[in-house]
Amino acid sequence: DTGKPTELNANTVEYDTSSGVITATGNVVMIQESSRISGAQAVYNSKTSEGHITGNVVADKENLHMTANEVFTQGSNMLIANGNVVAHQLDKTISGPRLEYNSDTNYALMPNSGTIVTAEGTITGNRLEAYLQDNHFIAVGNVHITSQTRNIDAYSNNADYYGNDNNKVILTGNAVAMQDNNTLRGEKLTLYLNDTGQAAVK
């Protein structure tokens, strides 16, 4: 999508016609198609469509609203946010030190630990992937799942959560699940989260 208009507004804009690099400083707003990113400073390479925005960055892309210390953009569909990243999308909040988000596929990756909070509960892990469209989350390493609505507390090495249709979570590796006064352990536990708030285990 190189070539689609990218707009930068700021106190100061410097442009090098030969390298295609734009440097914006002070009250920066960068607009690319449906994304709007504001910060203290931005450098955008119009030849590679790569941008780097720093300083209290706020990024809005369709229904995603994100804040972070810095954001890198690649083209108009790829955002990489670093430092105190908090992203809201509909009923979900994703937070962690780093977030890589592809708006075309609505896929988010938190490679350096993260937490996803939904209306159902919270899932935390060393590495989190979120297929936001399908409400499908994959957590790897030190996984911790809580659900206030179902009074569930669960731990495992890995977890695969399917929110939309089947509403279940598969815990693998040192899995422990506690609900009310029941505790279950195993190498693999599948919690079916039905609408009554109960969890069935297989």
Binding site: T2, P5, L8, N9, N11, G20
Partner: peptide, 8 residues
């Protein structure tokens, strides 16, 4: 300061 780069 305002700059637009790219087609259109």
């Amino acid at each position: 300061a305002h700059i637009v780069k790219g087609r259109g």
